[in-house]
Design a protein around this nucleic acid. Structure first.
Length: 833
DNA sequence: GCAAGGTC
């Protein structure tokens, strides 16, 4: 029996189909597909099925000094038990093994891992390696006719990366976590890829904070072109030549700006001095690689993680190619005409496909990067209908289809018209542009094609000046990196891979290093970067990856060996630890101070210390004084959710506002001291008899206001009787004269916003609420442009219905929900109205 | 419970 091993199930199935002429049958063993035909079996792994780790005795962070990890042994442990055991069973019976993992460095390493698993149980069987750049009939059959051997040097290059990443990451992560006593879920992590990425974000934030805005002025004048039958007004902007003889628009001193303004304002006309006309060719974009795909999806409002997850679903469903690729050059076996033919006649894309098929030449564009593992992202010939996909999936699918269309479409042509006019010695310019040939924009509507009209004028012509304007402006700090900009920068720096960059960014959120979108660093992030810059500069620099890449190349080419490279890295890390040993306290203080800063609310009203958000032993959050135990002042926080400290400060107490992140129940709590004081002022209002203990002990039901901001209808005998019914967090509660016949309680009305909410009898209301909860569903998805994924995301931000959406605060929601921009939200709100 | 890299 010949056993064929691929990197993933999908590849296994397609290779089995090709080699068997579609006669292969799938058999599910132990949760793993095994494709079977003739004397052959084909199994797909799931990427790495074994991983490197330290032996178990190094598991306890407190028992092991982090520095010991540097020279600790490293083992390979199975991470996908079921696949490993199925592979072993098959390998025992095999008389030939063929490794057909992806054609790249990591693929070679995954192949070697398979090789070792096979050798464990079968030391005789010949093991060969086949390589192909895409899974097509020609390439696959050709590869199987000309098998090769596994490239152990290339695999060793990958192993060097694994070892070095593990040693550096684990040793430094444990050191920082232990020294600042951050164990458990809140450990402080460091790594070759995440830390340079974090430094990018932190450095940018430092630039923004250090930014000193400068005043400048810009001047504009409206000009009038008059002919016999029409007059056209257009805008021009003042410019001058700076010391490098470049055109400059910004005037840096006010006096000059005012003088120019006076001259323009009092001028009757400007004389056309120069008219430049040129045509510019606007070439269609290159095929999508992962990064450019994420960027394009990002401009539609999707986070990197969302875009990739939708793309993976579309890939698994067979509608598009593998979404993790660096390749921007279509392989030879992709016939654009054939693929367009498949779209011809399609309800949504047919017309555009036909227009493209009418072109004389269907030569696709090419990007700079050509790799051999996967093609650029493009749609397959299997085309879904709109109903088969969620709205989000459809939006992403359409993007991929249209990008493919664009890559085979014609260039667009722009006509630019630049007019320079003079008022005395002052120059005014107008830049007009017109799209004269739509080209690829006709099939790819994602780029801005807005035109700017400037009329046809001739040199020497007089144009009336109808209005002059002066605008005072300030230079702006650099912008924060957005997620897709970060991913592009990581790619440029060579850190991370097409498969991991979006996960790295997600990791920074999970670790408490960044918040919001665009990601903003916390104090902790700044401290970690600062500490690393001082003691382990390499781990926050792109140099570490650059050097590692050089070493890996040397290993792959047989010029260096794995243990040599790994040992050299160990020595270097040892030096880092030698220096760190003396500064342990200093680093710990820095980290702890910043952790505290991320929790600071403001001044304690009873001592000179600061109030902090703290967690009690039972896991609930509260506000406590940093001076504890000398000062025992505390304030309660709501008992649902995880607190997030906002920038907004309470005017009365100087405390920062708190928001409670609780998935769909997320809400802004505000100033905890205000909330406690408000509750204190409210007296309990008795509304009836307690149904639990009224008869026996005379308990009564009252509307109660708790210091943590919540309200309820509860028994006056609390804590002896804990009967309670929930009430909404917001709005004034009015007790009406009408009473519920069934429960003999007054009907309640909540006043919050315009429409009063007739809540009714609190017992009836609670019953209805429970009944509603057990149903489920939301009307959000009926809104065009909101798919199930987006609806899910929105509901986590507390937006469950169209009504919620209408009243939602756009900025807050956009900052909270990954991948939902303010623009998209406003669009939906407009549709909802 | 640490990293980064595959894949789902």
């Amino acid at each position: 029996m010949e056993l064929i091993i691929t990197e993933k199930d999908n590849a296994a199935r397609r290779i089995a189909d090709i080699l068997s002429g579609e006669s292969a049958e799938a058999e599910r063993k132990n949760g793993v597909n095994v494709y079977k035909w003739g004397g052959r079996r084909c199994i797909g792994l799931s990427g790495h099925v074994v991983g490197v780790d330290f032996p178990d005795e190094y598991n306890d962070w407190r028992d092991v000094e982090p520095v010991e990890l540097i020279d600790a042994p490293i083992e390979k442990k199975a991470t996908k038990e079921n696949i490993v055991s199925t592979l072993r069973v098959l390998a025992r019976k095999a008389d030939t093994v063929t490794i057909a993992t992806d054609y790249d460095r990591e693929g070679e390493l995954i192949g070697k891992e398979a090789w070792e698993l096979v050798r464990d149980v079968n030391d005789e069987v010949p093991i060969r390696r086949v390589r192909f750049s895409s899974i097509t009939e020609n390439e696959v059959t050709d590869a199987f006719e000309n098998p090769d051997d596994l490239d152990f040097d290339l695999a060793a290059a990958g192993e060097a990366r694994q070892e070095i990443d593990l040693i550096w990451g684990a040793a430094l992560t444990r050191f920082l976590s232990l020294s600042s006593r951050q164990l458990g879920d809140d450990f402080i992590s460091v790594g070759r890829v995440q830390s340079p990425t974090l430094k990018l974000i932190v450095d940018r934030e430092r630039e923004i904070e250090a930014f000193d805005p400068e005043d400048y002025w810009e001047l504009f004048a409206d000009l009038l072109k008059e002919t016999d039958d029409e007059t056209t007004e257009f805008e021009s902007q003042y410019f001058y030549r700076d010391e490098d003889d470049n055109e400059a628009e910004r005037v840096w001193d006010e006096e000059t700006a005012e003088a120019v303004f006076e001259a323009l304002d009092s001028a009757a006309a400007a004389t056309v001095e120069r008219v430049n006309r040129r045509t510019r060719t606007d070439d269609p974009p290159a095929p999508f690689n992962t990064t450019q795909f994420i960027r394009a999806a990002g401009s539609l409002g999707y986070s990197a993680q969302q875009a990739m997850s939708i793309a993976e679903d579309l890939y698994t469903a067979g509608y598009m190619t593998y979404p993790r690729t660096d390749n921007t050059v279509y392989p030879d076996d992709l016939d654009p005409e054939e693929l367009l033919d498949a779209f011809s006649g399609d309800y949504h894309f047919g017309d555009d496909a036909d227009d493209l098929l009418d072109l004389d030449d269907l030569e696709p564009t090419e990007g700079d990067e050509e790799t051999t593992d996967h093609p650029p992202i493009h749609p397959t010939e299997d085309i879904p209908t709109k109903g088969e996909l969620s709205d989000d999936e459809w939006e992403i699918y359409e993007l991929v289809v249209r990008r493919f269309f664009a890559t085979v479409a014609e260039s667009a042509t722009w006509e630019h018209l630049k007019v320079v006019a003079g008022v005395d010695e002052h120059k005014l310019k107008s830049n007009g542009k017109r799209l004269v040939k739509e080209g690829y924009h006709a099939v790819y509507p994602y780029f801005n094609t807005s035109e700017n009209y400037v009329p046809d004028v001739t040199e020497g012509e007089e144009l009336a000046v109808t209005e002059a304007r002066i605008e005072d402006k300030q230079t702006q700090p650099p912008r924060r990196y957005g997620q897709s900009r970060l991913i592009e920068t990581m790619e440029k720096m060579g850190i991370g891979t097409k498969s991991t960059r979006h996960n790295t960014i997600e990791k920074l959120y999970d670790r408490g290093y960044v918040e919001g979108d665009p990601p903003r660093p916390t104090q902790l992030a700044d401290a970690v970067v600062t500490a690393a810059e001082e003691f382990a500069e390499l781990v926050v620099s792109e140099e570490m990856t650059r050097e590692l890449e050089e070493d890996m190349t040397a290993i792959a080419e047989g010029e260096a060996d794995l243990s040599e490279v790994a040992d050299e890295s160990r020595e270097y890390l040892q030096q880092v630890f030698d220096e760190l040993r003396d500064s342990r306290e200093e680093v710990a203080d820095l980290l702890q101070e910043s952790l505290k800063a991320d929790k600071k609310l403001g001044p304690c009203p009873e001592s000179d210390h600061e109030l902090l958000v703290r967690q009690s032993r039972n896991g609930s959050y509260f506000v406590g004084c940093d001076g504890y135990p000398d000062c025992e002042y505390t304030l309660p926080l709501p008992n649902t959710g995880k607190p997030l400290i906002l920038d907004e400060e309470c005017e009365d107490h100087g405390l920062r506002h708190v928001k409670m992140l609780a998935g769909r129940q997320t809400f802004v709590h505000g100033c905890p001291l205000c909330k406690a004081e408000e509750a204190e002022e409210q007296e309990d209002e008795v509304i009836g008899v307690c149904p639990d203990c009224g008869e026996e002990h005379g308990g009564e039901l009252a509307i109660k206001h708790l210091q943590n901001g919540s309200r309820l209808v509860g028994c006056t005998r609390y804590p002896d009787c804990d009967y309670s019914l929930p009430l909404p967090r917001r709005g004034d509660i009015e007790v009406t004269d009408e009473r519920c016949e069934e429960h003999d309680l007054p009907e309640l009305v909540v006043h919050n916003g315009d429409e009063p909410w007739e809540l009714g009898c609190p017992i009836c209301n609670y019953r209805e609420f429970q009944a509603r909860e057990s149903e489920s569903g939301s009307d959000l998805e009926s809104l065009d442009g909101i798919g199930s994924k987006t609806a899910e995301k929105l509901s986590e931000a507390g937006i469950e219905s169209i009504d919620d959406l209408k009243s939602a605060e756009v900025e807050t929601v956009a900052s909270e929900v990954q991948g939902v921009s303010e623009d998209r939200l406003r669009g939906w709100q407009a549709k909802a109205d």
